[in-house]
Amino acid sequence: MDLKKVDSILEKHGYRHSEVIGIMQDLQEIENYLPQEMLRYVSGKLELNLTRIFDIATFYKCFSLVPRGRHIIRVCCGTACHLGGAARNLEQVKRLLNVEEGETTEDLTFSLETVNCLGACALAPVTVVGKDYYDAVHPGKIEKILSKYYPESKRLPDAQD
């Protein structure tokens, strides 16, 4: 754990209890999840009860208490995406990677998440990998999309850029 980074985040928010959600969002950016030891450390520094921190960490969907993969796949399950077949896309990702929602592949390449709506409804169904958006996704496209994120040797020959 990089204590310097943690301290500078706490400093930035002025150790204010009201900003604990923002603090935790910034902390999560360090390792893509919230390690327990980090939360314990922060609880001590902020003089804020650990139960309150865990309450927040488990209430809000954006927080993860377990390590996540290098690329986070977010399958949008908003209404427009649902009508466009988001559920079939989600199943296809699960089948290909052999993970369930909220899980990470063994090689730590991908974590699979769903999101309520990304606000890109006119492009439905949408799936985001890391910061890359894919529009009009259907089950036949998924393998190609995912293969882009593997090292070149494992990619499909026609993977798009």
Partner: peptide, 24 residues
């Protein structure tokens, strides 16, 4: 103030509690 991905925080009293730094 950034939300944390909870639909219920669109409800006004929950949103206010969330700004106060608690679960909404």
């Amino acid at each position: 103030s950034r939300g944390g991905g909870a639909f219920v925080c669109g409800e006004e009293t929950a949103l206010i509690i969330s700004i106060e730094g608690k679960s909404g």
